[in-house]
């Protein structure tokens, strides 16, 4: 099984991705596959909130599982993809595109070095199968 792991993104151990370019984040292809069909996305933060790396920012539910989504880095929430609330299936269809979840303005760019690159993350996914 191979999952998409775009080269330009950074990854967390909890299967979130982060785009250093745009500040957007979401959950990975591997995560959506594990969850199966996503039926509900709920955001736990508001625009303007300051979050620490690892804070819960959203919850994703499928018919058989529920998962918390954590902030990949610390920062200020500048945008939330509220369209996801009505279109939870995007998480399965396009996890790195339409299903971005929040956009952050990182407050501690150092933290980005702690994230995995695409190659390391792809390997991390394989290891767990």
């Amino acid at each position: 099984m191979a999952w998409q792991t775009p080269e330009n993104l950074k990854y967390t151990q909890n299967d979130e991705w982060f785009d250093p370019e745009t500040g957007r984040s979401g959950i990975t292809d591997y995560a959506q596959d594990q969850l199966s069909d996503v039926v509900y996305v709920e955001f736990l933060v508001d625009v303007g909130d300051e979050v620490q790396k690892g804070d819960s920012v959203a919850t994703v539910e499928s018919v058989k599982a529920a998962a918390d989504v954590y902030a990949p880095v610390s920062g200020k929430v500048v945008e939330i993809n509220t369209d996801l609330t009505d279109n939870p299936e995007w998480v399965n269809e396009d996890p790195y595109g339409k299903a971005w979840m929040i956009r952050l303005e990182p407050t501690n760019p150092e933290e980005m070095n702690e994230l995995m690159d695409a190659e390391a993350y792809a390997q991390y996914c394989e290891e767990r199968e």
């Binding site: 039926v39 509900y40 539910e61 499928s62 018919v63 058989k64 599982a65 529920a66």
Partner: peptide, 14 residues
């Protein structure tokens, strides 16, 4: 039965 992911058998302590 639907929206079961709200419930204890999936969310446990949460």
């Amino acid at each position: 039965m639907t929206l079961s992911a709200r419930e204890q058998h999936i969310r446990r302590a949460r």
